[in-house]
Amino acid sequence: MGKQLEVEFGQITDDNIEQLRQVNLACFPVQYQETYYKNVVKGKNEDLCKFAYWNGYIVGAACSRVENVEGSDRKRLYIMTLCVLAAYRGRGIGTQLIQSILDHYEAEKDAALSKVDEIALHVQISNEDAMNFYKTKFGFEKGELVENYYRRIDPPHCYLLYKKLR
């Protein structure tokens, strides 16, 4: 573990969306669809989708959304992507990104996010590091196994990780 890096957050816009593509390309084995990028830009929500800047340039990003939970009027925060460039990992940048989303929830839980009661994400079953990260740092729990969630990578299955917020 190297020393911690204090990052600053910045908005994802139409003018810098290519950087999100570069970061994702460097971090994920899957390619995201155009609609994902379009929605991030269209959302214009700096609290849910953001870049992490260090020393003036982008080293990571987190993108989340508020979605309906099927069969109820409850909602949840869903983390679509979280990534930090390999060279900058292990320095608390991912933690700061997730924490900032949780902070946003805390600030809005009686207002815009009053119907939200959990935060969740999908993680490939082989990705031990990620599961550890969410469990130990933030107390996420392992949920259901979703089979054949991914199409082009092996193993194709994933777990739902979630954390009850209230």
């Binding site: 950087q19 970061v23 460097a26 340039y57 080293v59 460039l85 060279a87």
Partner: peptide, 8 residues
């Protein structure tokens, strides 16, 4: 560039 593809 491989290290930090975001630096112009």
């Amino acid at each position: 560039i491989e290290h930090t593809p975001t630096l112009v």
